[in-house]
Design a binder for these strands. Sequence first.
RNA 1: GGCCCCGUAGCUCAAUUGAAUAGAGCAUUUGACUACGGAUCAAAAGGUUUCAGGUUUGAAUCCUGACGGGGUCACCA
Length: 606
Amino acid sequence: MFLTNPTFAVNLFMMELVPRIKEIVRSVLDQHYRFSMESESVLVNETKPEFTGDYTVVLFSISKTLKLNPDTLGKELGETMMKDNPGLFEGFNVIKGFLNLVIADRILTDFLKSRYEDPAYGLRPANGRRVMVEYSSPNTNKPLHLGHLRNNFLGWSVASLYRANGYDIIKTCIANDRGIHICKSMLAWKLFANGATPESTGIKGDHFVGDYYVMFGTALKYEVALLEAGGMSREAAEKEAPLMKAAQQMLVDWEAGDPETIALWKKMNSWVYAGFDITYRRIGSDFDRVFYESETYLLGKDLVEEGLRKHVFYRKDDGSVWIDLREDGLDEKIVQRSDGTAVYMTQDIGLVVKKYEQYHMDRSIYVVADEQNYHFKVLKLICQKLQLPSAAGIFHLSYGLVELPSGRMKTREGNVVDADDIIDEMNRIAEGHTNELGKVDDFTKEERIELYDTIGLGALKFFLLRVDPKKRMVFNPDESIDFHGFTGAFVQYSYARVRSILRKEAPGKNDIDQVLPLFPLEKAMILTLEKYAGLLHTACQEMNPSLVANYAFGLAKTFNSFYVEHSVGRAESEHKKQLRIRICRLTSTVLRSSMGILGIRVPERM
RNA sequence: GGCCCCGUAGCUCAAUUGAAUAGAGCAUUUGACUACGGAUCAAAAGGUUUCAGGUUUGAAUCCUGACGGGGUCACCA
């Protein structure tokens, strides 16, 4: 670690502020108190607004171990830190167990000078490590809904976070393109469509196929009702219904490679993919590699053999293969059916191996809803027990469902917010607002359409990404997504404002060393900008784009306050003007960069 | 029922993983365009962090219990 190696001490001056403060505290404690701790575990917070200072060292745990009065420790620590690091701190104060540090203005203007022109500010150089992110993973029997959008935005954005932190990223998607659910829509099409196609009806392919899936459900319900009226139990009726039996037969035919069934399957899937492509292109989801379940569902059988040899699995009398995870606090889990076919889990293990053989990634992230927490817990455990080299890198990025005020969305019950619909609606609202304000009346038609999409889709992405992924969230279709306050449009508007200034003012050669002292909002702006690199690092470690959204909003908010308080064009002095132009330059870079990581474009004007 | 997750302002969400007087946005109320863009800014009001105990110098955060909500326990995926 260069942090603790004195030959690299010069690096301290290039470090970001918070790690730098932590390292200073660690070093002072080490040298003056013979107390050693990791610099990482020094607790440094932003100082609360009601106290004087920028960053605060929390001393309680240290003073406790050293058996010193926190006040005494704080004063000694503060004085030594000031003395050892001339120019870094302007002052300090100790209140209870808190050591509040005031960062010297000069440090901040130096930071600004060195970084304001850097378009890659905050990003890290390549580190040679590779991360795979699997996301989206749709079923090919129905169109995408709002929940899929959360998944897509999250996966895409987490991948971007890794890239920003220097990782080589591979985005993958597994299309769930086979199985009984696919057969249901195929069967319904055969029975009810009379040869209709997306082309003949003008309906987008994924919606077209989804309609037949719903139709199957409706028809099945009718059949079940008839059978129930005839005295059959519901459970039996659902099994015995002719439609259900036909669907099951179709699956058997599919697995047997029946040419007619395969041809229909290919045709209908191609319609769905054509529909998905439109939506994916629209929302900016892209993949380096798509896996198809139809190609992977037989994978994993040799691993079953291997598991049996290693006594990780065992075979029951009927031939089915199991793993006993009761010692790990879980249950017994089947990994191969008695007829020798693979189950979901087996395929997934097979795919783990296949992916690893091909890409040798250090980490493999699965963006999958939290309903599957148990599944992924088991998957990782099995891979570990099989001693697969890829096991350690498996990580389930579990996210909460998007719910309606009435509860969970269910395609079969029709209470879903369709992805295409909500995007259209957002664009319409963006169009309405834009035209009402009339600020871009000189735009061409194409420019306008692009702007509506930037704002509408941006609002939707921001809405879904600003919440901690792990948490469930509620979407109320009756209240349209906002364009004021903590929203994508707010950040975009702030960006357009900075750009508007930068179209008029360019940085001159004046140095900015004579602008001290900084006004509070100037200082707040630079401090916020300085945090960006550290924030990207944390957000990546936690795989949490909501931290980026919160940061971007905070920066935009501080900028708007700064904007109102301090004029750039009519600054009090040329030096102040140059300082503020540089603040604007870096703000523009960071707003664009942070929104970019969320997959949100920023407009020059709006 | 077993196991897992959640409960914070009227609503939607934060809280640097145990730290100072729990913060934002929306909605409500008030003020600000002869100022680089008012999709903005400044301010007010809004909280017994579901409840009851416990640990701690310090608890929304950790522990126990209750209540409420969700998920999962398939030879489905």
